[in-house]
Design a protein around this nucleic acid. Structure first.
Length: 839
DNA sequence: GAGCACTGC
């Protein structure tokens, strides 16, 4: 559940530990400038003169054909957004064409303004149309008529009326929705903070008279934050509220509103919603119910350049809808606006063009392109003259060169330094070196204060890096991982130091494992890092590599679909009716070997039959928001043979709640006391049963003691809260899919009892149904050798099984970093492996 | 003895 707080510094919004930049509307900015020449090497084609013809560059003279609507107090700032000038052009393009590619740099206002320009367009109104629907049986299989044609029936449905805007991250979707709702004059009530929300139905549930008409009539969703506000502001004694607590139901009438959002665990779609911000995954999920996206007149795909697996899949489905037969939508086209911060225009244009137009050489005719200038200050880029032998040394030199030669502030504000490094280890080493060196400085030189910033840091520690520094005569130096490249914005930064590398996870299909190694970044990533220096005023970017090295960098990062196991992507396609996954349109195709491996793996898991069609089990698996192997575990656990569904849910909730719920202990003295508490939770069966024990102990702890429980064991409160949300969702889905007969009793009625060794054995065997491939047996030389591939694998130090020798192990993760590591490890018997593979 | 970043009715 996102928590919203307005930041005290001007141009950012803080949500929990995240800072979202909203520059451009919160304050008036100086005249639009483009980045300096060195940063414009991103292969961005210049906008064509045709595109610019209707645009006056002076906003004072520009009178759009339609006045702004919504809250008038926000008009002045909206008028200063670069995008304001383009509204007629955007409307005119979309009245003629179905696809628009919009390239706009940070701060152009595209994410907030484009939907507002469009929702009143004629094509955006809801229409009643007749469609032919294929008749399916209860398993979703088509029913055939004699003659082999699918049986159809005609029905009248509503099509269109809503615009969806997809976002890669939940925080972005909810904050943008809040902002746009305010601009529209129908603010979203977010005060309840997850306490209540509109069920994600929106106009569709209300107006569509489908076969499921009034069945899902519940309007309110009890998505009570289970550990509400636990650990907020770093406080220790906050009230912790019991799950399923009997707080009074909010009877407040639903307010109508133009804007809503729908993200996992949090839906606010007021009646009358025309603009809906959703996560990419959420829209993919909607596609499962409604393959034609009938609710929508337009889909705006934002931040497509981030190229998540979800956005790639979504693009494929959208291409099919846009270029395919529109009978499912009663002939009404779906408009698609693809928005990107970096231009890969030709590829995207080509991708969304129909195959016919590609064949007869009119490629891109149906797709229009528009580029909006950004709001960046110029950033001077300084490369190293020759390659640096030692990155830490080069970093220190550069940081202190900046610190001693550049002013502490100017008329735009503070001039702080942001360094991009690869990981925690490097950051901590650099912090020590900088602090040591700072000691030796002349007292006349300003002081420095160093802040590390990486994902594993506690919320409070991350928060510190965003605060303006209190001491006068001191410069802030933030040492960050890639987290500062896209996820958060550090205010006050005017100098960027870029080491040119980042750690990337990459899946190796042949080995069935992934690696996490530091690799050179891409040009577009380097440009993104550079841009971080020019958000508040002119800046400088020091690259710790040569211009020659920069020129050798890959143009863009490898999209996620080429870096991860495509198991989930393939199952997603299969469940949405894609029979030939190799023919599915994708901007980048995974290697055939990766696809084949995934198909085999899905077959082993029982999600696909011998013909490669999705099975009933596969259909059940996609209902659960977990990866296919975990979904398989849940199905096994629901089986009488294993009968441990609630236990499996507890474990999977802990594991899939982001990073480990057990935080690393940093100081030595804390370690001792934390270890004592943690040892109590640990079980000799290994990590999985330890997670189960932890969850069971946690939920049986009285609400008021839960914060202490977490603190003593250094349990990450954010992740624990997420785990409880997931647990609740998986439980409710289990009831819905009839895997559980009744809703489980509330935690307050369950007393803690450690699981018996017999139950633990059943649980581990259920997990083996999803992870039989991820097992290893102890070799005579006392190393563990994997059953699949015969690789030597070491137990990761974060595991409770580290240093323990047992006859065989099962592990849920397999990562190569310094070594070949097994994580989330459990002790099993060697005989169980064959048993699991046999059935 | 070690941990880039996101995310899913």
């Amino acid at each position: 559940m996102s928590r919203k707080r307005k930041a005290d510094s001007g141009e950012v919004l803080k949500i929990g530990n995240k800072t979202i930049s909203l520059e451009g509307y919160l304050t008036k900015k100086p005249k639009t400038t483009t980045p300096s020449t060195s940063t414009s090497d991103n292969n961005t084609p210049a906008p064509t003169s045709k595109n610019d013809s209707s645009i006056t560059t002076n906003s004072k003279e520009f009178k759009p054909s339609r006045p702004l609507t919504g809250d008038p107090s926000l008009f002045p700032t909206r008028r200063t957004l670069p995008l304001y000038l383009y509204q007629d052009r955007i409307r005119s393009i979309l009245s003629k064409k179905d696809v628009l590619v919009l390239v706009g740099e940070t701060g152009s206002g595209k994410s907030t303004q484009v939907p507002q320009f469009l929702y009143q367009e004629r094509w955006c109104q809801r229409r009643r149309v007749k469609v032919k629907t294929k008749v399916v049986d209860k398993d979703g299989n088509e029913i055939m008529e004699e003659g082999g044609k699918p049986k159809t029936r005609e029905e009248t449905v509503n099509v269109g009326g809503v615009i969806a805007i997809t976002q890669p991250r939940r925080v972005a979707a909810t904050t943008l929705a809040g902002r746009v709702a305010k601009e529209c004059g129908t603010p979203l009530d977010t005060s309840g903070n997850g306490g209540r929300g509109y069920k994600g139905r929106g106009p569709k549930g209300k107006d569509v008279k489908g076969p499921k008409g009034g069945k899902d009539g519940e309007e309110w969703d009890e998505e009570k934050d289970v550990v509400e506000e636990m650990g907020k502001n770093g406080g220790d004694d906050e009230e912790v509220i019991e799950a399923n607590g009997n707080e009074k139901k909010d009877k407040k009438e639903q307010e109508k509103g133009l804007v809503g959002y729908s993200v996992r665990f949090d839906h606010r779609v007021p009646p009358g919603t025309k603009i809906k911000y959703v996560t990419e995954g959420m829209l993919l999920q909607e596609l499962l119910r409604d393959p034609h996206l009938r609710q929508y007149s337009a889909i705006i795909v934002d931040e497509i350049h981030e190229r998540s697996v979800d956005v790639d899949l979504l693009s494929g489905f959208l291409k099919q809808i846009v270029t395919g037969d529109k009978a499912g939508r009663g002939g009404i086209p779906l408009k698609v606006v693809v928005m990107s911060a970096t231009a890969q225009v030709e590829r995207i244009k080509k991708f969304f063009s129909s195959d016919d137009s590609l064949k007869n050489g009119t490629s891109g005719e149906e797709v229009e392109y528009l580029q909006i200038e950004g709001r960046q200050f110029p950033v001077e880029v300084i490369h190293e003259p020759k390659p640096v032998p030692d990155i830490q040394e080069a970093l220190i030199k550069t940081v202190f060169k900046i610190h001693t030669q550049e002013p502490l502030s100017d008329k735009h504000g503070k001039k702080d330094i942001l360094c991009f490094l690869t990981g925690q280890e490097e950051i901590e080493a650099a912090q020590r070196l900088i602090e040591e060196f700072a000691e030796t400085l002349d007292p006349k030189v300003p002081k420095v204060k160093v802040f590390p910033l990486f994902g594993q840091l506690s919320m409070e520690a991350q928060h510190e890096a965003f605060q303006p520094i209190k001491h006068p005569f001191t410069r802030k130096i933030v040492l960050a991982t890639n987290i500062a490249e896209t996820s958060v914005t550090v205010p006050g930064v005017r100098y960027v130091v870029d080491c040119g590398k980042a750690k990337v996870k990459q899946y190796r299909p042949r080995l069935g494992m992934e690696s996490l190694l530091a690799k050179p970044i891409s040009k577009s990533s380097a440009i993104q890092r550079t841009g971080r220096a020019g958000r508040e005023g002119p800046g400088k970017c020091f690259r710790l590599y040569t211009a020659e090295t920069f020129s050798t960098l890959q143009k863009t990062d490898l999209p996620e679909i080429l870096r991860t196991d495509v198991l989930g992507a393939i199952l997603t396609m299969k469940a949405r009716g894609i029979d030939d996954v190799l023919a599915f349109p994708l901007m980048d195709r995974p290697e055939i070997e990766a696809v084949e491996n995934a198909l085999v793996h899905l077959h082993v898991l029982g999600a696909l039959d011998d013909e490669g069609r999705i099975t009933e089990m596969g259909r059940k698996m996609v209902m659960f928001p977990v990866t296919a192997p975990y979904a398989r575990v849940l199905l096994a656990a629901a089986d009488q043979k294993y009968d441990c569904l609630l236990e499996a849910i507890d474990i999977i909730s802990c594991i899939t709640a982001g990073d480990d719920i057990f935080m690393q202990v940093r100081s030595e003295e804390d370690k001792e006391s934390v270890d004592v508490y943690r040892k109590e939770l640990q079980r000799r069966e290994g990590d999985l049963i330890t997670y189960l024990n932890t969850m069971q102990r946690f939920v049986s702890t009285p609400s008021s003691d839960r914060a202490t429980f977490c603190k003593q064991r250094r349990i990450n409160v954010r992740n624990m809260r997420q785990a409880l949300n997931i647990r609740k969702q998986l439980r409710s889905l289990s009831v819905k899919t009839k895997m559980l007969e009744d809703a489980p009793p509330p935690d307050s009625e369950v007393t803690y009892q450690p699981v018996s060794p017999e139950t633990a054995e059943r649980i581990l065997k259920a997990f083996l149904r999803g992870f039989a491939m991820k097992t290893a047996v102890l070799a005579p030389d006392s190393s563990y050798v994997t059953a699949h591939g015969k690789h030597v694998v070491a137990i990761h130090p974060s595991s409770s099984m580290h240093g323990v020798k047992r006859e065989a192990i099962m592990f849920l993760e397999h990562v190569y970093t310094q070594k070949n590591y097994a994580k989330k490890v459990s002790a099993i018997q060697a005989g169980w492996i064959a048993e699991a593979l046999a059935c």
